[in-house]
Simulated scan of single mutants.
Amino acid sequence: MDQLITFAMSQSLLSTIWLFIVLMIIVMTVRIQMSPIKQLSTQQMTFLINRESGVVVDSRSEKDFKAGHIVDALHLGNDKVSKNEFSSLEKHKDNPIIIVCSAGMSAGKVASQLAKAGFTRVSLLKGGMNAWLSAGLPVTK
């Protein structure tokens, strides 16, 4: 323990950076846990689709969507998201909606905008289509 304190005092810049990184990890973990938008695994997503009539919304480009997408997924392009045009999803407002993107990184923005538009049961697929394909789950063209 004495060596740790000595190191921290002699390497204050490294210690500060390390402390900052640990703090950011804690903050991000708490934000994810407290968020109304949940991240689902492929298995959880499959259960939600089958048991509660979940609707998959693919937010990738039109080209990627046509190359292969989850069965019965609806396409919602970035142009519609930026204009908050969610009229194609209005009839699914009471159903769980799962947002899918390529790697699970940009789906959060779409999910947040849907939540602001009044969709109460919005989730996203952790890992996006990459996770879906890695799990060996079916896609259609």
Rank of each mutant, 00 (worst) to 15 (best):
M1E: 12
D2A: 14
D2P: 05
Q3W: 15
L4K: 09
I5V: 14
I5K: 15
F7L: 15
M9W: 08
M9G: 10
S10G: 11
S10L: 15
S10W: 11
S12I: 08
S12M: 13
S12W: 15
L13V: 15
L13C: 07
L14E: 13
L14W: 15
L14K: 06
T16E: 01
T16C: 09
W18D: 09
V22D: 10
I26Q: 02
I26W: 00
M28I: 02
M28P: 02
T29Q: 07
V30Q: 01
V30K: 08
Q33K: 15
M34D: 06
M34A: 14
S35M: 02
S35T: 00
S35I: 01
S35A: 10
K38M: 05
Q39E: 13
L40R: 00
S41P: 09
T42H: 08
T42V: 13
T42M: 05
T42A: 12
Q43H: 12
M45N: 06
T46Y: 03
F47H: 11
N50T: 08
N50L: 05
N50W: 01
R51T: 09
R51L: 10
G54M: 03
G54H: 08
V55T: 13
V55H: 08
V55Q: 10
V56K: 02
V56I: 15
V57F: 08
D58M: 05
D58G: 09
D58W: 01
S61N: 11
S61R: 06
D64F: 07
F65V: 00
K66F: 08
H69E: 11
V71G: 04
V71T: 14
D72C: 05
A73G: 04
L74S: 07
H75I: 07
H75W: 13
H75Q: 12
H75L: 14
G77P: 09
N78Y: 12
S82L: 13
S82N: 14
K83I: 03
K83C: 05
E85G: 05
F86A: 00
F86N: 02
F86M: 02
S88W: 01
E90N: 08
H92T: 05
K93H: 04
K93Y: 00
D94S: 14
P96T: 00
I97G: 04
I98A: 04
I99W: 02
I99Q: 03
I99M: 07
V100G: 04
V100K: 00
S102N: 11
M105Q: 12
A107H: 07
A107C: 14
G108P: 10
G108E: 05
G108M: 01
K109W: 00
A111M: 09
A111V: 09
S112A: 12
S112D: 13
S112H: 06
Q113S: 06
Q113R: 10
Q113I: 00
L114G: 03
A115T: 11
K116E: 15
K116N: 11
A117D: 03
A117M: 00
G118D: 01
F119G: 10
T120P: 01
T120M: 10
L125N: 07
G127T: 04
G128P: 11
M129N: 02
M129R: 03
N130M: 11
W132F: 02
W132G: 07
L133A: 11
L133R: 14
L133G: 01
S134H: 03
S134V: 01
A135Y: 05
P138K: 00
P138M: 01
V139G: 03
T140C: 04
